[in-house]
């Protein structure tokens, strides 16, 4: 289990600070693939960075904290400040656009070894890595290549392989297949699913593609304007979403062979620079009332294990018709 306690994370800029994660509070059960979706700029990457403990200026954790599944060797509680020593070993991160974030002039093997403890027997570990990636149908020579020598798909599979090698308790993956073709994407996702099933670790998986979430995520976290707005079992989130934003996300996408016009959610999310009151989705919500504009809805459990931040989530939502 990972417990996120009232996380508030901000970026400092010349214009002031912006709250990119604003009071996210939830409990993620272990052994799940948790899909994270939400508008661009709503704080998904920031949330992963906080959990990874990658808090470098201008990003800072203002308040709240993360309880990880594990204690450190001295039985001390691990915090976002001490989690760094477990990078790769117990928590790993596949960053957004990691395809270009690998250092182009350093061999993949070297970039990986840099994370190993200095004491560890590097050669022996490397041998084990070679064996491991071979099991995943990746050529061992790929380890000895420079990133540019590999195709985008191969690089992402290497990232997945390296991120899973130490069998970490937690894997954070930020859009690992965006920008890849669907054939390669499917290969990578099935690989990730297979590894997760074997290792039973917790995977937090950011993607804009709701079809991908439908395929692989056990649970869904929907974020909107720096807040968590819905969290529950995928099957239920897809079939009976509680938050109108979630429903619009699911209904807005076209399908091959379906000639209906689709409408995106009109309007735009509120600027995180402003002082926000009420429900942050209210301005774009077809069901919003005065109460929504005045009073911020709490993030509560409306059905067993199914949370949402909407005043009317307990009621049956009328279906939001995509207008023709």
């Amino acid at each position: 289990m990972i417990r996120l306690n009232q996380l508030v994370a901000t970026y400092t800029t010349v214009r002031g600070t912006v709250k990119a994660v604003d009071g996210v509070d939830l409990e993620i059960p272990s052994g799940n693939i948790v899909g994270i979706a939400g508008e661009s700029g709503c704080g998904k990457t920031t949330l992963l960075k906080v959990i990874y403990g990658d808090l470098v200026y201008p990003l800072a954790l203002d308040s709240g904290g993360v309880d990880y599944v594990f204690a450190d060797d001295d039985r001390q509680e691990v915090t976002t400040e001490t989690i760094q020593q477990y990078w790769f070993k117990r928590i790993s991160y596949i960053p957004q656009s990691s395809m270009s974030s690998l250092n182009p002039v350093v061999k993949i093997r070297k970039q990986f070894v840099d994370f190993l403890e200095p004491k560890a027997n590097k050669e022996e570990t490397l041998d084990r890595v070679r064996q491991f990636i071979r099991q995943l149908d990746l050529p061992a020579e790929a380890l000895d290549s420079y990133p540019h020598q590999l195709s985008g798909g191969m690089r992402q599979r290497m990232m997945v392989a390296l991120a899973t090698f130490f069998q970490p308790d937690i894997i954070l993956a930020d859009e690992p297949t965006t920008a890849l073709d669907v054939v390669v994407q499917k290969g990578i996702l099935l690989l990730l699913v297979r590894l997760q099933r074997q290792m039973q670790n917790t995977v937090l998986f950011v993607s804009h593609d709701m079809g991908v979430h439908y395929q692989i995520s056990h649970r869904m976290l929907i974020m909107y304007a720096a807040k968590a707005v819905e969290f529950g079992e995928s099957a239920e989130v897809f079939s009976a979403p509680l938050h109108p934003y979630t429903r619009m996300l699911i209904d807005s996408l076209p399908n091959i062979g379906d000639d209906h016009m689709r409408q995106g959610v009109s309007g735009r999310p509120p600027s995180l620079w402003d002082d926000l009151r009420g429900c942050r989705f209210a301005a774009r919500c077809p069901l919003a009332t005065q109460r929504c504009r005045d009073e911020e809805p709490a993030f509560i459990e409306h059905r067993p294990n199914h949370f949402a931040a909407c005043h009317y989530a307990g009621d049956e939502l009328p279906k939001v018709e995509p207008s023709a």
């Binding site: 661009s40 593609d209 699911i250 807005s252 996408l253």
Partner: peptide, 17 residues
């Protein structure tokens, strides 16, 4: 060239439309 690959589902259709 992949104008919507980094845009989420709800806004993607706005750009496409």
């Amino acid at each position: 060239d992949e104008p919507v690959s980094m845009i989420d589902a709800s806004l993607r259709m706005n750009v496409i439309n």
